[in-house]
């Protein structure tokens, strides 16, 4: 899949999360609300961090919440959550997190073209902070699609 233009329900801006679990849950809920996953996928995303640690915080301020492809995934999709107050994931270098991207794919190869598009958007180092500051969905979409970073 290439990055689909995100549905309104997949974009949650300036949300409030008490901790990293709540932040990942918001990204999971947005995937469920936009018809991409079942609630079980959200639990799988949480388990991945509980099992392996906060490695999903792959860049300063950004967590890529995801789990393996499986029956919990109804269709490929992304969600975006930005946090009004950043939360700590316990990562040695990239805390605190203010942007959580939820990623779901029905198959591993589908994931890969979506992450290539994500890489395109975020290889611009200003994009994460710009997304964290976005106050409307159109700005968030523009940043994710690499059309604008400030």
């Amino acid at each position: 899949m290439s990055l689909p233009s995100l549905a309104d329900r997949a974009i949650v801006l300036q949300a409030h999360a008490a901790d990293w679990r709540a932040a990942v849950r918001l990204a999971g809920d947005a995937l469920v609300d936009s018809g991409c996953t079942t609630a079980e996928y959200t639990e799988a995303m949480l388990r991945l961090v509980e099992t392996h640690g906060p490695y999903i915080v792959i860049a300063p301020g950004l967590a890529l919440a995801h789990a393996r492809p499986g029956p919990e995934v109804r269709q490929d999709g992304l969600s975006v959550v930005t946090l009004a107050e950043p939360v700590e994931f316990g990562h040695a270098h990239n805390d605190p997190v203010s942007v959580v991207i939820g990623l779901a794919g029905v198959a591993a190869d589908a994931h890969l073209s979506a992450v290539a598009d994500l890489a395109n958007a975020f290889n611009d180092s200003a994009a994460i902070q710009a997304l964290a500051r976005a106050t409307n969905r159109e700005d968030a979409r523009a940043i994710l699609e690499g059309r604008r970073v400030s």
Binding site: Y55, I56, L64, H66
Partner: peptide, 19 residues
């Protein structure tokens, strides 16, 4: 390498190939 073999390791793969 990552926990799920997709997602974060996919980002690494894509950017490593570019580099």
């Amino acid at each position: 390498i990552c926990g799920a073999g997709i997602g974060s390791s996919g980002i690494l793969k894509v950017n490593a190939e570019r580099v």
